[in-house]
Amino acid sequence: MAKTIVVSNQKGGVGKTTTTNALAVNLKARGFRVLAVDLDPQGNLSFSMGADTENSATIYDVLKGELKTQFAIQRTTLADIIPSNILLSSVELEFTGNEREYLLKNALHPLESMYDYILIDSPPALGILTVNAFTTSDYVIVPMLSDIFSLQGITQLFETIDRVKTFCNPNISMLGILLTKHNPRTRFSVEVKGTVDMISDSYQIPVFETFIRESVALREAQSLQHSILDYAPKCNAVIDYKNLTDEILGKGL
């Protein structure tokens, strides 16, 4: 039975897509069956994994009920993926009926025996798409930059997760806060880390021991649709994502 993990933060540019991509590649490299689901209308994860978003079925078609979920899966060299495109941005207006929070959960349920891990890249917002991702998932990873702006809104994110836990998915839990583009040698990053630790204590939310360092190679690999493991295996950030994968597996997942 697949473990479903959503990577979420309502702030953009914190590394959600990069983290989803990196975890999918690392888990697949270790022999696990991995499915990535792009739930962001921007479709950046789809592009980075070499998926076709123009002439093939997407998660939008699945959520509309126009085809069975398995027919939207694309098998790329990096991992299996259900892609997304800009059409998904209309869901707030289109999906207004009862039980709309469960659309993704119902769509992915038939695939749970086919994969070991289902990784969801969520949009930078706390709308119905993100609520669907929370309703579907077993665990949440929250990437955040080591800056003061990333601390803003974290409370709102946790409150949204708590509401979903109360009304839609009592089994969801926080896997951890992940510091990205983090430099532990700068005073400011150390101060931000201290604030994150206080938030962690207040909300009883773990912080990953692993942090991700800044890297141009990560962006290059994604823009070229290459595996980060092949493109820059000795890059600090690539090593960090390997360590993050170890840490996640070490938690019993």
Score class of each variant (00 low, 15 high):
M1L: 04
M1W: 02
T4S: 10
S8P: 00
N9L: 07
Q10P: 14
K11N: 03
G12H: 13
G13W: 12
V14Q: 00
G15H: 00
G15C: 01
T17C: 08
T20I: 03
T20P: 00
N21V: 00
V25H: 00
V25E: 13
A29K: 09
R30P: 03
R30H: 06
L35P: 00
D40R: 09
D40T: 07
Q42R: 06
Q42V: 04
L45C: 06
F47V: 09
M49A: 04
T53K: 13
A57L: 15
K64D: 12
G65D: 10
L67S: 07
K68I: 11
K68D: 14
A72G: 09
Q74I: 05
T76S: 06
A79L: 01
D80K: 06
P83C: 10
L87A: 13
L87R: 15
L87N: 14
L88D: 01
E92G: 05
E92T: 06
E92N: 11
E92V: 03
F95R: 01
G97Y: 02
N98A: 13
L104N: 08
A107N: 09
H109A: 14
S113P: 01
M114C: 10
Y115N: 08
Y115F: 10
Y117A: 05
Y117F: 15
I120Y: 03
I120K: 02
P123Q: 11
P123S: 14
G127P: 08
I128M: 12
L129A: 11
T130P: 12
T136G: 05
S137T: 15
S137H: 08
Y139S: 06
Y139N: 08
V140K: 04
L145T: 13
S146K: 02
I148S: 09
F149R: 09
S150W: 04
T155R: 14
Q156D: 15
F158I: 13
T160W: 04
I161D: 05
D162K: 11
V164C: 13
T166M: 10
P170Q: 07
N171L: 11
N171F: 12
S173Y: 04
L178Q: 09
L179Q: 12
N183D: 15
P184T: 08
P184M: 02
R185C: 04
R185Y: 11
R187Y: 10
V190E: 14
G194W: 01
G194H: 06
T195K: 15
T195N: 06
T195Y: 02
S200D: 12
F208R: 03
E209T: 14
T210S: 14
F211L: 01
V216T: 15
R219L: 03
R219S: 15
E220D: 13
A221H: 04
A221I: 03
Q225K: 13
H226K: 11
I228H: 14
K234G: 01
K234T: 10
A237W: 00
K242M: 08
I248L: 03
L253I: 15
